Simulated assay, not measured.
Amino acid sequence: MKIYLLYTGGTVGSVGKPLGPLAGPRFVDAFRANVETIITSQLPGTTINYDYFTPTLDSTNMQPADWVRIAQKVLSNYKKNDAFLVLHGTDTMAWTSSALSFLLPGISKPLFVTGSQLPLFFEQDESYTLLFNTDALRNVLGAIQFMTFAIPEVALYFADTLYRGNRVIKSNAREFTAFSSSNYPALGRYGVLPVLNERLVRPAPSTNALNNHIQKVAADLNIIMENINRSSVIQFLLFPAYYDRTSGDSLIVSMLTQLSRVNPPLRGIVFESFGEGNIPDFASMQALLMDLSTSGIILVDCTQVYAGDVNYGAYATGAWLKGAGVISGYDMTPVAALAKLVIQLARDPSSPKDEIQKAMSTDLAGEMVIL
């Protein structure tokens, strides 16, 4: 098995106090010296082709253009490798794994994203020793073991669990079980042996397999990279806030009005709404969302609750949203919705609003179940 390993930074490759990611060449040297022999002893015949970001990034500093950079690097090495492992910080890992599922349609090889809550190496006198008492080595080795199943998915592997990449959120900063996938079961778990739940894995693509459309997807990624910073999409968490039904004064309306004037121009809002997709229904809120939608801004409603979906038939505070031009995100995570909307808008900035809305309401990569 030929593995393309892309190190972007993150805790997995960090050393020092405070922690900061090693530069790419130093990480690769340390990985070769300490980890590669373990991998090849467990999986004889495995070869690793290394690459890295320059500079490496704490994932807090990741931005949408970096998602495209990762996709472009994977695509450039797609035909030469059997599997792809992206080492990434945990803070924004879920956005990246979600984005990759939309950036590389028709993927037919495993592309896994992993990292760790604690570092892989200890630094002393500019030499690097493997840390066996952290989650880093376990995550790397577990991800590579699951690659032998050759599943055609973008997945996130963490704490003995393989998740669909666009179904996860980071839910724990204190324990090794950092990620959750409340609306879709895990694709696999590693106990004594790795066990894959094959019925949950997306079927391998046929006519639209990525391998048959490398040049087309490469051109698409170039267009996305060119446009990705030309418009703004925001993720907005609803919270209990002051409003006055008589005067129309509202903290949230005021905030959204200000945000609608950002630069680059606002093209989309992903709401993290209450419960089953509910947003306060006082008159000034309804008027604002209708105005935003009429102006061409794409409004997507995802629940902020970890498990569940948007159901506009449940409550009056949700029933009005469809008429205001807000589209349901169903059971999609707000993280996946943001990545999806950013990419859809960058793929063709001139696309009519209804085409973007249709794409956002369509399951493109297993990110949602439409009820």
Rank of each mutant, 00 (worst) to 15 (best):
G16Q: 14
Y312H: 11
G313D: 14
K216E: 14
T161E: 07
P119Y: 06
G16I: 04
N208A: 03
I3L: 15
T8E: 05
D58G: 05
G16R: 09
G248P: 06
N139H: 13
W320D: 11
G275S: 11
A319H: 09
G188H: 08
A99D: 08
Y52N: 10
L57K: 15
G329N: 13
L130E: 03
P119E: 04
L238D: 01
K358I: 02
I234M: 05
M368A: 14
L87H: 08
R245K: 12
V270L: 10
A219Q: 12
S171F: 00
S254P: 05
F271I: 13
T46P: 02
A241M: 07
V342I: 13
N133R: 14
L141Y: 07
D331I: 04
Y7P: 12
F122Y: 12
G313P: 05
P194G: 10
T207N: 04
V310L: 12
E355Y: 09
Q72S: 13
R347W: 01
S127G: 00
V335Y: 10
L19E: 11
W320C: 07
Q235D: 12
E123D: 04
G188W: 06
T11S: 01
L118R: 15
Y128W: 06
S127C: 02
A83Y: 03
I327S: 12
L75M: 10
V201S: 05
A150M: 11
L87P: 06
T54P: 00
W320L: 11
T148Q: 15
R138S: 15
R202Y: 03
G318Y: 13
T47R: 10
A316T: 14
P280G: 06
R199T: 14
K80Y: 02
A33H: 04
P55F: 09
K322R: 15
S180V: 09
M62K: 07
I223E: 06
R199V: 10
T8V: 02
T317H: 14
L87E: 08
I356H: 09
S101Q: 04
D125W: 06
Y78N: 00
V310E: 13
I228H: 02
G323Y: 06
G323C: 10
R26T: 03
E355S: 14
T11W: 04
S231A: 15
V86G: 11
I48T: 09
I279Q: 02
T294F: 02
N208H: 09
N208P: 00
G89V: 10
G13S: 07
S206A: 12
K353I: 15
P264N: 13
P55E: 03
I252R: 10
S293D: 12
F84H: 07
K17Q: 11
A71Y: 07
L156Q: 01
A218I: 00
L210S: 02
R199K: 14
V233N: 03
G165V: 01
Q117Y: 06
